[in-house]
């Protein structure tokens, strides 16, 4: 299992797309946190929650890009047929599945923490360069941390589940973008209040202050059940 985890980390770190997505994340942080919210806009300098908001925004807006990196870790295997090497090198397919699960989790936690921490720092730097001081800031670390990490992790695990089920790179990315955008929007019209139980809708509600317990349970239920379905399909289906 350790060998599989090492191998998956190497896969993640020896591919250009990982760095391209990380650069996009950095560029987004610089553009929005440093330039738009820091250097250019000084309207909100009296907002004591400004820096906390930058951190939350980073978790929320960069979650998709970080999740796509994890998704490519699976879909590339099918696209380039390296899945046959991956499976035959391991004792079981379950080992491969859990190795990918662990690597996606670690990558998501590290990357989202990095950019969520970077965003308020860049805003401070932007304001400093502009020559503006902010009012004293309130920064609820723990609250932002657990909401942010749960959001990013669940988003990446949803992406991993979609990737294992769909397998085709284009199909998986399109599904991952269309399902929450169009699919759940249409279902919301039907389900009305109950739409909070839909996977991506509940995921976005993590940031709401209401009914947190139900939201967390719903998100975790989707992550666990979805992972089990993905694992089952990964074990049963032909590796191509």
């Amino acid at each position: 299992m350790i060998a599989q985890i090492k191998s998956e980390f190497k896969k993640l770190l020896t591919i250009r797309s990982t760095y391209v997505f990380l650069l996009f994340c950095l560029a987004a942080d610089i553009l929005f946190a440093f330039y738009v919210e820091g250097f250019r806009v000084t309207n909100f300098v009296n907002d004591p929650g400004k820096l906390a908001e930058q951190s939350r925004s980073a978790f929320q807006s960069l979650g998709l890009l970080i999740a796509l990196v994890g998704m490519l870790l699976i879909t590339h295997e099918y696209r380039y047929n390296t899945i046959m090497y991956t499976i035959t090198a391991a004792r079981s397919r379950a080992q491969v599945f859990f190795a990918k699960f662990i690597v996606v989790t670690v990558f998501t936690v590290v990357a989202s923490l990095l950019f969520a921490a970077l965003a308020p720092l860049l805003t401070i730097i932007g304001l400093q360069i502009h020559g503006t001081d902010m009012v004293a800031q309130s920064f609820p670390y723990l609250d932002i941390l657990w909401h942010g990490l749960l959001f990013s992790w669940a988003y990446s695990i949803f992406a991993l589940i979609v990737a294992f089920i769909v397998r085709s790179q284009v199909g998986a990315i399109v599904s991952f973008i269309l399902v929450p955008g169009i699919g759940e929007s249409l279902l919301t019209l039907l389900l009305k209040d109950n739409s909070k139980y839909l996977p991506f809708t509940s995921l976005n509600q993590i940031w709401m202050k209401t009914d947190t317990q139900t939201t967390v349970i719903t998100v975790l239920a989707y992550a666990v059940v979805g992972s089990l379905v993905a694992l089952l399909l990964f074990q049963k289906r032909d590796a191509n």
Partner: peptide, 29 residues
């Protein structure tokens, strides 16, 4: 125990040959 070659172009096109084999080596211990 078993070495396989089932398809010639089973590799990521931009990952170097050395890294491609490095990944397989890591997976196989």
């Amino acid at each position: 125990i078993v070495g396989i070659l089932l398809e010639a172009k089973a590799f990521h096109p931009t990952r170097s040959a050395q890294n491609h084999l490095g990944i397989l080596a890591a997976a196989g211990g």
